[in-house]
Design a protein around this nucleic acid. Structure first.
Length: 301
RNA sequence: GCAGUCACUAGCGGU
């Protein structure tokens, strides 16, 4: 069972979480292996990642008959699963079933309220929490930022007892996604001045801000930084860099980044460059790149 | 008998 649990867990974070569910039913129906709390937690995570409410409910039943539904890990994953499947009421009822919720369980409930954009519900949960972790603050920050409530987000950011790289990248990304590119760049500078190392997510955020603002010079500085710290191996960062160069009108640099990408090119890498070429009037080159992509074995989405 | 799986938060492309 240990081995199968590892398999299910591996699939749950893959592109094809359905494989976890197949493995689960293989274990249960064909091999007659014992299902434990790990099996259920990992399988439920797959149900969230698909997401599939039906599968999630069936797994809930399997947990129920074994008395594992209120197991702290399984119960917490059930809350997340219902939230991901858009059933916040189910998530909430599940929370009430768990006898000794811990911080992670409370955080899962917070996430559930923000999933449907219910900031007031989340605030109630936050105020009821017997203890809060950094993740709890990051959740409030991210929830407000996603809703564009930057006064509230800034208040959380300024008042939280500590900050980690997630706090910073959440803020930068939230600002960038709401078109506040100047502020996003300002937070990125603050992060850098605080001698904290910007991570890959802050970089995609600030790059997207540069793309909006047409800040080509700053993008070049960021490019240098990315090479220096070795983030050139990170595909999403490279993709964001290409997109920024394209949108700033420097499709030559975008092409160069693409050609020199050391890491694996994803479907997004190709699409970003093709769109950039098309946008700048290099339609033919874009088309031939499209055919090259098909030859390389990737299928367009 | 013991140990081993560890649940909640942020990211890129017509979006």
């Amino acid at each position: 069972a240990f081995m199968y649990n590892a398999l299910i867990r591996g699939f749950s974070n893959s592109e094809t979480p359905q494989n976890s569910i197949s493995t689960f039913s293989l274990m249960l129906n064909n091999l007659g292996l014992q299902i434990d709390s790990f099996t259920l937690a990992f399988s439920l995570k797959s149900a969230s990642n698909i997401p599939c409410f039906r599968t999630g409910t069936q797994l809930h039943c399997q947990a129920l008959v074994r008395g594992l539904d209120t197991h702290i890990f399984v119960g917490t994953t059930l809350i997340s699963m219902y939230a991901e499947c858009g059933r916040v009421e189910f998530a909430r009822n599940m929370f009430d079933e768990i006898p000794n919720p811990n911080i992670v369980t409370w955080n899962a409930l917070l996430t559930a309220f923000f999933r449907r954009g219910d900031a007031e519900g989340a605030e109630r949960v936050f105020s009821l929490m017997p203890a809060k972790s950094l993740t709890s603050y990051n959740l409030m920050l991210g929830g407000y930022a996603k809703l564009g409530e930057f006064d509230l987000a800034t208040k959380v950011f300024d008042e939280m007892p500590m900050k980690d790289e997630i706090s910073w990248s959440t803020m930068i990304l939230g600002l960038a996604q709401h078109g506040c590119s100047d502020k996003a760049i300002r937070y990125f500078r603050r992060l850098h001045e605080a001698s904290l190392r910007p991570n890959e997510v802050s970089l995609t955020g600030v790059l997207s801000a540069c793309a909006q603002a047409g800040a080509l010079e700053f993008a070049k500085i960021l490019h240098g930084f990315i090479e220096k710290v070795g983030l050139i191996w990170n595909t999403p960062v490279n993709n964001a860099l290409m997109d920024t160069y394209s949108k700033c009108g420097s499709v030559d640099m975008a092409r160069l980044v693409f050609q020199r990408m050391p890491g694996k090119k994803s479907i997004v890498s190709w699409t970003t460059l093709i769109a950039g070429l098309a946008m700048q009037g290099y339609g033919e080159e874009g088309l031939s790149l499209f055919h090259e992509m098909e030859k390389s074995g990737l299928r367009p989405d």
